[in-house]
Amino acid sequence: MRPILILSEVRFKKDGLKEKELQKENGSSVELKLIDSPVDRKKIEQILKDKPLGTMLILYTGGAARKRIRRAANSAGFSHEDVRIGKMDTGTYCIFCSQCHRINRTASLEKSIICISCGQHLEPSNHYSSFQDAYLGYPIL
């Protein structure tokens, strides 16, 4: 079993703890770190530094924190597939405005939105970028 590091925002503490128990039962060595949002980049880099080769990172974070942590993890040598998103209800999705690049938040991928920055009417798609941690919003004419 690969070593596991769980990073959980305080608001998802319950989910993080549940994951920890589950992974322990599977026989992994598990470490759970609780983080405050907004996340401090330096602190995240410190946490991700010098983890054993083969570590799997599981995130219980949403929004900007998740994107920031994922990028820091990639910089620290975690591959894309070494970072998993835990099962939790963040209640929001991020939509990348294809006209002005602003990332909007929405509660549902089913409903169209108006971009808060450029006012474009957008239809969320299922085209997801893990780099942006957002779904592409297509313009509705």
């Binding site: 530094k49 010098d50 983890k51 054993p52 080769l53 083969g54 620290a76 040598g77």
Partner: peptide, 10 residues
């Protein structure tokens, strides 16, 4: 022994 204790990014 030299192979041991390697960290992520290696």
């Amino acid at each position: 022994k030299a192979l041991q204790n390697r960290t992520m990014g290696t």
